[in-house]
Amino acid sequence: MERFTQLTGRIAAMPAANIDTDVIMPKAFLKGIDRAGLALGLFHDLRFDAEGRQRPEFLLHRADMADTRFLLVGPNFGCGSSREHAVWGMLQYGIRAIIGTGFAGIFADNAANNGLLLIILDPIEIASLGACLSNDTGLISIDLEKRIIIAGDVSIDFGIDPDVRRALLLGLDRIGDTLTHSARIHSFQQAYLAEHPWLVEESAR
């Protein structure tokens, strides 16, 4: 997974509510057996027309938005399908953090598992960030160690799940970590299946 410590970059605002993962990564990009080629898929049907021509009016295609690293989004971003391709596409495109009032659960877990930082702020803080976008360079800094966003003269502290923060800072191997508990899992499973014998499959019974 990608690590995140401190990063300065451009932020783009997509304030619509309920931007779903079908829109973030349309189905045409879900036919792979690896993770390749998903930068092109990100917001594809908003970015390109039916003939594959770039839509110049789309936010991320504006000349001043070319190197966007962060998104400022509306409520319930990432709702809908569980497709992790949406998160892979974000990172491949170069988006490293998303700031919003709340994210859909599966999307948030997928982000945490891949090193895409999600920051939840209250609507007033979101509005103050939005205001500095319109009158400033559009550059902000996010420091995950200090848990602070700096935009011009404004600085905003943010809270984050300590486990997610640690994983983002250090780039943990979650499966490897869990397997250190193998003995616990084995003994739990043994006792559990003894108590729920109907869960033991024919083949193993």
Partner: peptide, 20 residues
Amino acid sequence: FGIGTSDIEHLLATQTLIYH
């Protein structure tokens, strides 16, 4: 509940998930 691909891998390898 639904999970993404990284968590499918975790589940297949460990029969568990890290859960909130």
